[in-house]
Design a protein around this nucleic acid. Structure first.
Lengths: 215, 215
DNA sequence: GTTGAAATTAGTACGAA
DNA sequence: TTCGTACTAATTTCAAC
């Protein structure tokens, strides 16, 4: 609240209102990016890395949590180290009148890591993690195919996970620069909510360093 | 080290050796499960919830991190709240001799959240997050299809994410019970590494409560 | 939105069981 | 190994600027 009239003339941190939640500025995005990579960093260290005061960092941190932008924190667990060596995708054709049954059944299967409802040839894609390939077959035949909501399945084994970057953030200049290097209208800045092009090289070059997954 | 001869007769916490790393027992799994749901919990609170001493919790926590079982911590970010409303899957047919080029190109695309090399009809599946559907089309035509390594693509829009449970842990009795309720050989316990069946109801009933994503 | 205090809590290093 | 305690260092909270 407070950025109603002219969002372009507000100076340095142009907040981009998204949906109905709080307006996020470049500092918020910097915080999110750090917290995405190092979820257990102290707020004090966070403040220092972002370049704001402790109190400010606490306020923003709390606001992000309260507003649901940050829904929580997770340890990243190495699946292989924990006995889940095999990952597979199962494409499912669902009887349209039994969707809720299908969802309920999935919720009861701990091997299911992800389920997306999709357009296209199939209705849903689920991703599972199991100890060995035999378990994939067992899961499909003994569990999935016995659900009445499931009409057909198609299984694909994942041979390698080339990229794993959970909780990506928007690309574009808004999201790494905090210093007043970019005057509002001069460069190819893209306000969130607007559909403006950014030259690919620009937005990406500065993003790269902050996308690494450490800690 | 110390559990070489008879892992069944060791009593309560039967460690299951996985790969070459440290042997994980049920306490480790309980720690992992809590840390998966509440990545920012203090070690003191963790110790209390697991039912071990603070010192022990520190030791195990450090061991899990040092051994790479826990590779880090992440904030869970609500994509919609951050302006990334659209999620899509793109199935890619890759020129087999140009795989490395393909990987390198993906690494430079911040919209790509995940890429898996798969068996089946296509060679890879990538998942992207962008602000709107137009951006999906732009990404496929302007970026992906201009990579020489990409022979063909097939795009599917995700209408709903029915389940999102990153970093799942193995199912089975080993992974929630800490109390000596289960004598080693009597029930359908499944040692990790062995391929033994567990009756579905057993392993899952007790798992359900600890799979919820809070904080 | 920032700085600088106090109060609380976290992390470490011992011995003892 | 694991536990319990004491010690040190850090973080969070709360005040005033």
């Amino acid at each position: 609240m407070g950025d109603s009239s002219s969002p372009d003339a507000s100076g340095d941190r142009r907040p981009g209102r998204i949906g109905i939640g709080l307006a996020l500025d470049s500092v918020h995005f910097k915080i999110l990016d750090i917290l995405r990579a190092q979820g257990r960093i102290s707020v004090a260290a966070l403040a220092q890395r972002v370049g704001i005061s402790r109190a400010n960092a606490y306020t923003r941190f709390e606001a992000l949590r309260a507003d649901g932008v940050i829904s929580g924190f997770s340890a990243r667990i190495d699946h292989a180290r924990v006995g889940l060596e095999i990952c597979a995708l199962i494409f499912v054709t669902v009887r349209q009148e039994l969707w809720q049954q299908f969802r309920n059944a999935l919720a009861r299967m701990p091997e299911v890591e992800y389920c997306a409802v999709t357009t296209g040839q199939h209705d849903a894609m689920i991703q599972i993690r199991v100890p060995d390939v035999a378990a994939v077959h067992r899961l499909v035949t003994d569990q999935l195919s016995t659900i009445p909501a499931v009409r057909a399945t198609e299984t694909v084994i994942i041979l390698d996970e080339a990229l794993r970057r959970p909780y990506v953030l928007p690309s574009g200049p808004d999201f790494t620069e905090t210093t007043p290097a970019t005057p509002p209208g001069s460069t190819g800045a893209s306000q969130f909510g607007m559909t403006r092009f950014i030259r690919a090289a620009e937005g990406r070059a500065e993003l790269r360093s902050s996308t690494v997954e450490d800690d």
